[in-house]
Design a protein around this nucleic acid. Structure first.
Lengths: 295, 295
DNA sequence: CATTTATTGGACTACAGGTATAAAATAGTT
DNA sequence: AACTATTTTATACCTGTAGTCCAATAAATG
């Protein structure tokens, strides 16, 4: 990454930690990073975008740490699971951004992008947790995996918040996680409440970075073929198959794809396939990033 | 209440609902309330304080509704409990401030007062829920009441948030509450995690308004007699017994009490009794308010 | 060396929350 | 009715914010 951009991100990070996001004026970031305003807005279109970049780094860090923790261990290893959950807290704690991650609302139209970004992150986290609950507790939990993931996640967050507000001591995060797991580690008496397909768009792409997002995107689109055709929307159908053609070819025209994907995304809005939109968007962004890195 | 103040609060409420708190400039409130800036700052020292006033009203509303729901019903009536929980959501929904209530963090030094205010509210809510869980599920849940209250509260909040973010339809709040209750309505396998005395300062005063907060305050202080003496802090001990003397007398000197209570509060800081401080503060404030109303 | 690109730094806009104050309106009292 | 005290208004003002714009400068590139 660019040197200046790195400088900015690092400075912003330390300042956000020390004083909080909205209490940190851009001016302070500029001075700390030894960079001019022009440069800042050359790399980030807004302060919010800068924060999102930081949060993205943290996300990568968490994913990496969790991957490391899993190496050589069974996927049903409970201890590993606990440590993996704790990873987010440790890193957020290190960056002191936990509160920010927990505060998903704020109901401000101004920070719309930030809201969506954080929503994406927390929904991915819940989805991941449901998957891991299946791993760890086996088939008996399969049906209730999302129910229990939500309960677990909710319990962990609220408990750690309470311990922080009341005790003001260091939070015993692993104990808290064990407590939350204990709360779900009992027989479910009722039928499942949350449906698995709500969470379809938030499944993380396995082995990200190593595999080819091109194939993933291709497969996802192909899977939608029949549904798209059924919608009988000429434009949408055209975009869809055009994108698939490009993905099949050796050298896709990236500029054309960029443009068509844009229209495709818009066309997907307000259709039955709207819920798949974001997922496609994510895959596409990954695909483009990989292309850019390779070139 | 003052007419102008009412105008302002009503206007602010509708605007906060429509556009969100920080997206609503004071100017808009002034115009909507047909009031000048000077008047606004005559009644509220800041926009934040105005919001807190609104939230206080909502709290009163919730307490009132819950009281109504309980009339003539057994305290172990589960249906009543569910409706009581839902009351907060219905009212917050009506005022569309649920998101705000849920977003307790934001980590901004600027909104310190707001943060503390919201903390108080959510901790009171959890405490109330623990009490009610005892009522409804009986002795078997007593030990785990706080554990389960946290799990229940966390599950309800996260679930409703997820349903809102993903489904974007109206949240089936009662079903969500039944789900959350189902998540705790099972045998606890582990010893309790959260200690009851964390929540001591957040117990709501029963039958508030009808009974005498003077007696409540007196009892609370008396209960602390031995602990205070044990601390061997001359000043603190003096304040403590002075306040008790005043409370016993027919006509306490309110000005003196105000001053001594202030010092007493400060003296309590950083002692073993720090956790009782807020509770005493609340009782004292109530006591003073009643006095003021009677005069 | 010449051209392109990145960077600077400051001026500038628009808006926010909050203060200050003198004049006008209102309410309360004798 | 007259006087007083309080409330309200209207407006100007201060401080600080995010973000835009742009001409001048520096750095990188072929």
């Amino acid at each position: 990454m660019n040197k200046k951009k790195k400088q900015i991100i690092e400075a912003a990070q330390t300042l956000f930690i020390k004083k909080g996001f909205s209490a940190t004026p851009i001016q302070d970031i500029l001075e700390a990073a030894n960079v001019s305003k022009g440069t800042f807005y050359n790399y980030f279109s807004s302060k919010t975008e800068c924060l999102m970049a930081i949060l993205s780094f943290i996300k990568e860090e968490v994913i990496h740490d969790r991957h490391q923790l899993a190496l050589g261990k069974s996927s049903s290893d409970k201890e590993v699971f606990v440590k993996q959950i704790a990873a987010r807290f440790h890193i957020d704690k290190k960056h002191n951004l936990m509160a920010l991650f927990a505060s998903l609302a704020s109901s401000d139209t101004a920070h719309q992008e930030l809201k969506e970004f954080l929503n994406q992150q927390y929904l991915e986290e819940v989805t991941w947790m449901a998957e891991r609950i299946c791993d760890v507790f086996g088939a008996k939990k399969q049906k209730h995996a999302y129910d229990d993931a939500v309960t677990c996640f909710g319990t962990i967050h609220l408990t750690s918040k309470i311990l922080m507000d009341i005790n003001k001591t260091e939070i015993p995060i692993e104990e808290t996680i064990y407590f939350a797991l204990g709360q779900i580690e009992r027989a479910n008496l009722h039928p499942p409440f949350l449906q698995a397909d709500y969470f379809l768009p938030y499944h993380q792409i396995k082995d990200a970075g190593e595999q080819d997002s091109k194939i993933e995107l291709q497969q996802t689109l192909t899977a939608l073929n029949s549904k798209v055709d059924k919608l009988k929307n000429d434009k949408l159908t055209y975009y869809h198959h055009f994108l698939l053609e490009q993905l099949k070819s050796e050298n896709p025209n990236l500029f054309l794809m960029e443009s068509v994907m844009n229209s495709y995304q818009n066309a997907l809005l307000h259709t039955e396939l709207e819920d798949k939109r974001k997922y496609i968007q994510i895959l596409y962004t990954q695909f483009m990033e990989e292309k850019r890195e390779n070139s």
